[in-house]
Write a protein that binds this DNA or RNA. Structure first.
Lengths: 208, 208
DNA sequence: ATAACCTTCAAGCAATTCCTTGATTCCTTG
DNA sequence: CAAGGAATCAAGGAATTGCTTGAAGGTTAT
């Protein structure tokens, strides 16, 4: 079973299959369509053949590859579906933050300092872990974007959250806020990032 | 898209996923179920997580992995379907040839010689290696029965294969043909073995 | 036959993947 | 806080994979 999955697990082979699903094609044609050398295409095709995903027949000078027997097309379709689903979620989050940027009022650095002194704010750093480790705003929690959705529950829900990223123009900040709000967390983007914070003369934490 | 397929493209990861589909499980449990080291399981799980196929949450001391969002289960199901389909065909082929052995027409020695002259045949000797070394039909390949299934792929699949063993009554010849056909190789048994070949006045090879 | 063409094979190198080991992090519990 | 369990990280060597190059199969066409 993994044999089939492995056969589908290479971009080139997947691309070849996508073309073969549509119609029988020769090796040269496929190589051209997928922008690879003929020899390379031939080798990938033979891997697909070994896995039973395609079959070959000769027609004159050419060897035509077509889809193998069985519900392979369904597998490819299911894969498409799944990937489309994931892409949709990303697109939607981005579109949201693009369409209604006005609804997302950012918090200025001074306002943030005030709120921090009141202890009424959770500061979330959404950059990758390695950047966070180098330096980050004091007391910030590091939750990279990919983990944000599932770790949103870590943030107590009656606290205001302020998210920041690399800088004031970083789209990811807004995206993060969209995600947090989708999880029911009251969140706002910081008007700036680490550089602005430093420029304002405040302290930074390092490590951890 | 290939990213997801690649994540599914390793036997261990697929095995992990099969268990995760059923229920949330801890790393240790999964490692035990799939018979791999904890560290190794952990690494594969993280690959799956990176691809978005699974999500992790902590529960007490353990970290529980569960299926990611979206119609991933459909992909796995489609894969199952497809593989089941192929397995069916193999089983069916075996059953067919067992139930109706009379349909397995053997190739006469004279017919074999004709075909060999045309170069349109691969001759497989399924006896143990030591017997093969003593003497065998010219040009024959030696693949003992136990290795036949896994080495079937060595035989180019658009060539006719003729298999032979010790003699015309040797059951192993038919068994070999069944195995080969199950692998999609067009195979037929020889009506006889080394003694009959010699008796017909043809040459034998020795050694190698 | 010979030539021309499409495809496959074979070999070698670079890059990646896989698994193991031992240390380390992270969290809960006493 | 300390102890302990669960999971992850990090690094290394073995194995596999992927791509390129040049040569070799086979098939039509001249």
């Amino acid at each position: 079973m993994a044999e089939v999955a492995r056969a589908l697990g290479h971009p080139h082979r997947l691309a070849l299959l996508e073309h073969i699903v549509r119609a029988e094609r020769s090796v040269e044609r496929l190589a051209d369509l997928t922008d690879m050398s003929v020899a390379n295409a031939s080798q990938h095709l033979q891997q697909l053949k070994r896995a039973g995903c395609v079959q070959a027949r000769r027609d004159g000078k050419n060897i035509l590859y077509s889809l193998g027997q069985g519900p392979l097309a369904a597998v490819v379709a299911a894969l498409h579906d799944y990937v489309a689903f994931k892409q949709d979620r990303i697109d939607q989050a981005i579109a949201d933050s693009r369409q209604r940027p006005q609804e997302m009022e950012s918090v200025s650095i001074d306002a943030l300092v005030d709120r921090m002194n009141e202890g009424a704010v959770i500061l979330v750093d959404v950059r990758p872990g390695d950047e966070f480790r180098k330096s980050h705003l004091p007391g910030a929690v590091n939750i990279p974007i990919p983990q944000l959705e599932e770790r949103a529950k870590e943030l107590s829900d009656n606290a205001h959250v302020v998210a920041y990223c690399k800088g004031p123009y970083c789209v990811l900040t807004r995206e993060a806020v969209v995600i947090l709000r989708a999880q029911g967390v009251e969140a706002a983007p910081l008007a700036g990032g680490v550089p602005e914070w430093r420029a304002a003369g405040y302290r930074l934490d390092e490590g951890v």
